[in-house]
Amino acid sequence: MSWAELLGVGLMGLGAVFFVAGTVGILRFPDVFSRLHAVTKADNLGLGLVAAGTGIMTADGFVAAKLALVWLLIAVSGAIGGHLIARHALRDKT
C-alpha cells in the first residue's frame, strides 16, 4: 500500500467517523437546533474529508477538482438548508 493510498483511506475513515457522529447526533439530540448543529458539521467536514481522501487516491487533477466542486456545492446547500430549517423552526416556535 502506497503512502497516497494510506493517506486517502485514513482521510476517508476519519470522514466516516464524522458521519457516524452526525447520525448519532440526529438520533440523540433533543431539538431541531441541536440536531441541525450535529448534521451540518458532520456533512461538511465528513464529506470534505471523504472527498479529500478520494481525491488523493485518484491522483487525477481534474477528478480531484470535480470532487472539490461537489464538496463545495454540498457545503453551500447544506448551510443554506440548515439556515432555512432553523428559520422555519424559530418562526413556528414564537
Binding site: 466542486l69 456545492l73 453551500v76 446547500s77 448551510a79 443554506i80 439556515h83 432555512l84 428559520r87
Partner: peptide, 16 residues
C-alpha cells in the same frame, strides 16, 4: 421570505 442568506446562495448556485 427566505432570509438574507438566500440571495448569496442563489448567486452561487444558479450560475453553477
Amino acid at each position: 421570505p427566505l432570509g438574507p442568506l438566500f440571495v448569496p446562495f442563489a448567486k452561487v448556485i444558479v450560475p453553477v
